[in-house]
Simulated assay, not measured.
Amino acid sequence: MFSALLAVFLATTGAKATQLYPLSLDLKGEGQLIVVFIHGNGSNASAWSNIEPQIRSMGVQTVVYDRVILDPHPMWEGGYAVEHEAKDLIAALSNLTEAAPIILVAHSYGGYIASLLAEELELVQGIVFVDAGIPQDMSAELVSFVLAEYTPRFEALEKAAPELAKTVIPIIKAYPATAQRMGSVTIPQHLPVIDIVAEASWVKDEKVVAQMHKAHADFTAASPTRTSVFAKGSGHNVMQDKPEYVIEAIKRMVEQVRDK
């Protein structure tokens, strides 16, 4: 989830880029469906650069953006919260989509944001999780692992990449609150979901990994509209390691939503 912790966020632009504080959304393509790509922590919109053009060629619109936290933000005066990110994206999409059906493609921490959107927006007609977080995997053990693993790195990150530190450190510090919020999130059971799980986890604690795998297995087993895909040979960044899994899953989801 933080494998690219020292990366630099890149700005995305495009012919139809729409500025909405604090998000810059890059909307491309034509079609009746919109596929929204949500990257994980320590990454940026370029994570989807080898995926998005192939999906757009299917005759859909695509939205990519950088999850940049700008300070001060009138909604975030009390500090970072995952729900604030979701609300910003919901507001931005409401200005772009014109009631078009939405498919969310979410990697890593982006899965928690996607889960909030799926609970809130009826326009969300499908989700592809790419080794992503889901509400059920945000356990106390996972929170403890993240805080213990990454808190000691704050000082080095602030020195090496101060702008990135401003975006990543608040997210890590907020993990206990994020876990609490995820505990009340319910992804509708009728919603089609493809849950891609990588062979190699970003978590290095075997007990936590086992709990996460069980959470994902239980999640997909809870509804016939949910499918699990095992990305054999892939690490956490499936879109780079094994992009064929991601492309195939999105294509399947697009076809399924179109056939409704």
Rank of each mutant, 00 (worst) to 15 (best):
T220L: 07
A179T: 00
A161H: 00
L121Y: 11
I55H: 11
F37T: 00
E163S: 12
G79L: 11
I69E: 12
T220A: 06
Q32C: 12
A217N: 14
L142T: 00
V35K: 04
A161S: 01
I113L: 00
S57K: 08
I69D: 12
Y175D: 07
V35T: 03
Q54C: 10
R181A: 15
M75P: 06
L27G: 08
V209E: 14
W48S: 04
F129E: 11
L23D: 06
A156Y: 03
H84Q: 14
T227D: 10
I194Q: 02
P22I: 10
M1Y: 14
V238D: 02
P243V: 01
E163A: 15
A11L: 07
K204T: 04
A114F: 00
L10C: 03
L164A: 05
I169Q: 02
P176V: 06
A165I: 10
D26M: 10
K159T: 14
A7C: 06
A81Q: 09
A174W: 08
L104N: 01
A4I: 14
Y21T: 00
D26P: 09
G79W: 12
A231T: 09
E163I: 13
R258Y: 03
V8P: 08
K260N: 11
P72L: 04
A156C: 00
A221F: 12
P135E: 08
V60F: 11
L142H: 03
R153F: 13
K232Y: 05
A114G: 01
F9V: 07
P22W: 09
R258A: 03
I69R: 13
I187Y: 02
L5C: 09
V35A: 08
E163N: 12
W48R: 00
L20A: 11
V130Y: 01
F145T: 04
V35E: 04
P176K: 04
T225G: 08
V35R: 05
P74M: 05
I250D: 06
T167V: 02
V128R: 00
G79Y: 12
E77A: 07
P224E: 12
Q125R: 12
P170R: 09
Y245W: 01
R226I: 00
G133W: 06
S223W: 06
H39L: 11
A132Q: 02
Q211K: 11
T178W: 05
L27H: 09
E83S: 14
E206V: 13
P135T: 07
A15G: 07
T178H: 09
L70Q: 04
L5S: 05
D131K: 04
W48Q: 02
K204G: 09
A217C: 09
A100F: 01
D88N: 14
D88H: 14
E244P: 02
L157T: 10
N50K: 15
E119F: 04
G59R: 00
